[in-house]
Design a protein around this nucleic acid. Structure first.
Length: 428
RNA sequence: GGAGAGGUGGCUGAGUGGCCGAAAGCAGCGGUUUGCUAAACCGCCGUACCGGGUAAACUGGUACCGGGGGUUCGAAUCCCCCCCUCUCCGCCA
C-alpha cells in the first residue's frame, strides 16, 4: 500500500500518478478518514493520560490507607469515554485500512504512458521470428503425436485447463525446472527455498493478492487457506512482520506449481497449455535497499532473459505501460517468447519492482546505515513460467518430420536425449 | 485428533495486580584504557502511532510482554476464545 503520510502531504502528485493507471481513486474518503482518525487519537490519548495519572494516584493513596472510592468513580467515567472513542477509532481504522488496501501502487516516472496492453513498449528483441520451411504445428498437435500431453484424461479427473504431462513430457518439465533453479542458484546468486503451496489470507494480503484478486484464487474454506497463484506469495512472506537484520540484498528463488482460477478469461487463448489453471514456475524474489531497486529490476530481468538465451529462444522484452502494470507494481517488464505454431508472442515472465508497496502491507523492514528502520523494496520475476516455455520449445524445435530438437542446454538434464520423436515416449 | 507444559525485547531469562516498556546476562553501538588481538571499565542500546520541532537532531504523550476479547480506578501478571511451539498418546506419506 501507499504511505498515508505521502498521500496526505503529496496529494496532488499521488493523484497524478494514479491517474496514469486510469485507476479510480477514492482519496477523498481516505483523507477524510485519516483526518478523523488523527483527531480521535489525539483526544483519546489525552484522556488515557488523565486516567493513567489518576490511577497511579489512587494506588498511592490506597497504600497510604486512604479512601479512594470517589476518585475511582471519577476515573471510571473517564474510562467510559475512552471506550467510546476507542470504538470509533477502531471503525475509522478499519475503513482507512480497507481503502488503503484497495489503492494500487503509483507507477514509476520511467513507466511509459498508455491505457492497455496495446500501449506497451518493446524495449528489446532477442532474435527475430523466423518462418519455418514447412507449416508449423501447434504444441497441441505435437503433444498428441509425441504422446507427451494428455488433456482429456486430466479433464476427467479435474476439469479443463489442468495439464497432464506424460513420459518425456513430464521429464522435460522436470528437466526445465532443474535447469532454471541451477542457473539462478549457481550463477545468479539466489538461495533456493521450497515453500508451502497454500497460504493464509494475511500472506495473500501482504503481497497484494487480497483483497482485490480473491476471485482469481482457489480457496479452501475448511482451513481458510488459498492455493498460491505464484511462489511470489510464500517467498515474499518469508520476512513478513520482520525487521531484517542481515545485510541486503537478499535473493531467493523457488520452484512451485501455480494455481489460478482465471475467472472471466474463458474462451480467451485457452487452447492447450497457453492459459491453464495449474502450471509450474520458477520464481525469483529480491529484498533490496530502496536506492538500489531500479538497478535490481534490470538485473532481475537479465536473470530471466539468461534462461531464454541459454535455451536459444526468440523473445522480446516489453516495458508495460502505466495502464497495464499490475495492482502492486510500480514498474514491470514482461518477457514474451515467440511461438511459431501459435504465430504469437507468449508471456513467460513478468518482472516487477513493487518498491515499498508490498513491504508496507507485509511489514518487511530493514535497518538503514543510519540505524533507522525503513521498509525494504521487494521485486519479483518469473524465471520463468513453465507451461508456455514448453509450448515455445516444442513449436520452435519442431522439424518437418514431426520431431522436436531440444535446446542444447537441457540435454544434460534429459539424460542425453536431444530429440523427441513420435513413438519414443512411453504411452499411457 | 486427545492429554499435559509453555509462548516476555536480536538471543537467554526474571517478573503473578500499581514503584514494569519490563531485572540480569549475552550480542550490538559509542568511549576510556591498551604495542596488536583480547580483556577490563563507563555510557547507549525495542517498535508503531499522535503531537511539538525544519519530514534532521531532539522532545511530550499513547499503545504494545503470541493474537483477540473481558474483569479492574489500574493488567505482562486474573478470566474467556483463538493461534503457535514442545512432550506423550492416536493416526499416517
Amino acid at each position: 500500500m501507499l504511505d498515508i503520510k505521502l498521500i496526505r502531504e503529496g496529494e496532488a502528485e499521488v493523484r497524478a500518478a494514479l491517474a496514469r493507471r486510469g485507476a479510480a481513486t477514492h482519496l477523498d474518503a481516505l483523507l477524510q478518514a485519516d483526518q478523523q482518525r488523527r483527531r480521535l487519537v489525539t483526544d483519546v490519548e489525552s484522556l488515557k493520560r488523565q486516567r493513567n495519572t489518576a490511577s497511579e494516584e489512587i494506588g498511592k493513596l490506597k497504600k497510604a490507607g486512604q479512601d479512594t472510592a470517589a476518585k475511582q468513580v471519577a476515573v471510571k467515567a473517564i474510562g467510559a469515554q475512552i471506550a467510546a472513542l476507542d470504538d470509533q477509532i477502531q471503525q475509522v481504522d478499519q475503513e482507512l485500512n480497507s481503502l488503503l488496501l484497495m489503492i494500487p501502487n503509483a507507477p514509476h516516472t520511467s513507466v511509459p504512458d498508455g491505457k492497455s496492453a496495446a500501449d506497451n513498449q518493446v524495449v528489446r528483441m532477442h532474435g527475430a521470428p523466423q518462418p519455418l520451411a514447412f507449416k508449423p504445428k501447434t504444441h497441441l498437435e505435437l503433444g498428441e503425436s509425441l504422446g507427451i500431453l494428455d488433456f482429456g484424461r486430466a479433464a476427467r479427473m479435474t476439469g479443463a485447463g489442468f495439464p497432464l504431462y506424460v513420459g518425456l513430457g513430464a521429464r522435460l518439465e522436470r528437466a526445465l525446472v532443474q535447469f532454471m533453479l541451477d542457473l539462478h542458484v549457481k550463477e545468479h546468486g539466489y538461495t533456493e527455498v521450497s515453500t508451502p503451496f497454500v497460504c493464509n489470507s494475511a500472506a495473500m494480503t501482504g503481497t497484494g493478492q487480497l483483497p482485490k484478486m480473491a476471485e482469481d484464487m482457489y480457496y479452501i474454506p475448511t482451513d481458510d487457506l488459498y492455493l498460491i497463484p505464484t511462489a511470489e506469495v510464500p517467498i515474499t512472506n518469508i520476512y513478513r512482520e520482520e525487521i531484517i537484520e542481515r545485510p541486503l540484498p537478499i535473493y531467493l528463488t523457488a520452484y512451485s506449481p501455480c494455481f489460478r482460477r482465471e475467472a472471466g478469461s474463458a474462451g480467451r487463448e485457452t487452447r492447450g497449455l497457453i492459459r491453464v489453471h495449474q502450471f509450474d514456475k520458477v520464481e525469483m524474489v529480491k529484498f533490496v535497499e530502496p536506492e538500489t531497486s531500479y538497478r535490481e529490476l534490470e538485473s532481475l530481468v537479465a536473470n530471466a532473459e539468461d534462461v531464454l538465451q541459454r535455451l536459444g529462444l526468440t523473445y522480446r522484452v516489453l516495458a508495460l505501460c502505466a495502464g497495464d502494470i499490475s495492482f502492486a507494481a510500480a514498474k514491470c517488464y514482461d518477457i514474451e517468447l515467440w511461438a511459431p505454431g501459435q504465430q504469437a508472442w507468449l508471456e513467460v515472465s513478468s518482472c516487477s519492482n513493487f518498491e515499498s508497496f508490498q513491504a508496507r502491507r507485509a511489514l518487511i523492514r530493514y535497518r538503514t546505515k543510519a540505524k533507522k528502520v525503513d521498509y525494504v523494496h521487494t521485486l519479483n520475476g518469473s524465471g520463468v513460467a513453465l507451461a508456455r516455455l514448453v509450448v515455445a520449445i516444442l513449436e520452435n524445435g519442431q522439424t518437418a518430420d514431426g520431431a522436436i530438437n531440444l535446446p542444447e542446454a537441457i540435454v544434460p538434464y534429459m539424460d542425453g536425449i536431444r530429440r523427441l520423436e513420435p513413438g519414443q515416449s512411453p504411452k499411457l
